[in-house]
Design a protein around this nucleic acid. Structure first.
Lengths: 189, 189
DNA sequence: GTCTATAAAGCGATAGAC
DNA sequence: GTCTATCGCTTTATAGAC
């Protein structure tokens, strides 16, 4: 049952992400991850050179998906419809297997800030922001673009600072995000 | 010059908050705080019993200010005007000396989660949320209430995941927050 | 591919002198 | 109120056997 494994690398990623989300990156030790997997620390080091490398592998996955969205949007015209479709795709991504990674990113900014993988990701997020709220747009629109993204994240993670289930529905979150990316009366792009 | 001090406790709070915001709670050691103050670790322990106690003292300050706002709002009628005034007062608080504390809270959720002081604060935030978006309100309105608060925080901390100065103006943030707390066409309280 | 054992460093916290 | 010195523990990471 616990004999030869070929998926240990992925099991490490899964368990590590679980613990990172549950108790934070810094508070999660390799010993803890190893224990939960019922292997030793040394086994972890066979698959990942450092603790940071685990995070790196986690973020690389989501990174390419984000790149796809940015690339797709680059081929479209800069319309409200395009921005809304970007949000819809992001919502699907967050509701899918990247939700926990997103949440980890959201809640562990200090850790990511000095992690290199964090900077790579920050650049990708900046592309997304520029997509949703161009640098030459109304400052309020830029802020709304960022809030639209936050809405999607909170929708997936109700306990932003609370845990009211009603405010945490993904459908509601997408609805509010779309409305934030839509032109108000007397404005638009 | 560096002789007798009577404000050491406050100096510790100030320097600790600076470092907590800059590099995160976990990554900031008492040794580092002591070095920046040019005292020893042991001196820190004279003023605070634990590292956690420093955070506790930081959060207690802002806590009473939040309580005042909640109490004031409790005396008003539950109108849009009241909610907007709450946001205005929160904005002033965040723009004032509580900005860094707010940012620390926002960026160190995993650390706060297991810090007791964090739970006390979470309860206060919940009161605020309930104030801005009652539990029996439209789920979308509840989410918007949370986003209004996020807007104020991002306004004070542009580098949410980026650092575009235009999107980080406190006035713009307040404007967007107010609009999020206002009834849309066909809805209201 | 996983193990035991350990190195090297940093951490929060305390004791006791001054 | 601040110091020196240190305790006890945990951490990341490595060496080398199997």
């Amino acid at each position: 049952m616990a004999g030869r494994r070929t998926d240990t690398r992925e099991r490490i990623q899964r368990v590590a992400l679980d613990l990172f989300v549950e108790q934070g990156y810094e508070k999660t030790s390799l010993r803890e991850i190893a224990e939960k997997l019922e292997v030793t620390k040394a086994a972890l080091y066979y698959h990942f050179r450092t603790k940071e490398d685990i995070v790196h592998s986690l973020i690389e996955d989501i990174g390419s998906s984000l790149d796809e969205i940015v690339a797709w949007a680059g081929e479209q015209d800069r319309s409200v419809r395009t921005r809304q479709e970007v949000l819809r795709r992001l919502s699907a991504l967050i509701q899918g297997r990247f939700g926990p990674v997103m949440r980890f990113m959201q809640e562990n900014q200090p850790a990511l800030k000095e992690l290199h993988a964090g900077h790579v990701l920050a650049q990708r997020m900046k592309s997304l922001f520029t997509l949703l709220g161009p640098d030459d747009a109304d400052p309020a629109d830029q802020l709304r673009a960022r809030l639209a993204l936050v809405a999607l994240m909170i929708g997936n993670n109700p306990q932003f600072l609370d845990e009211n289930p009603a405010a945490g529905s993904s459908e509601v979150a997408l609805q509010v995000a779309l409305e934030l990316a839509s032109p108000r009366s007397g404005a638009g792009t």
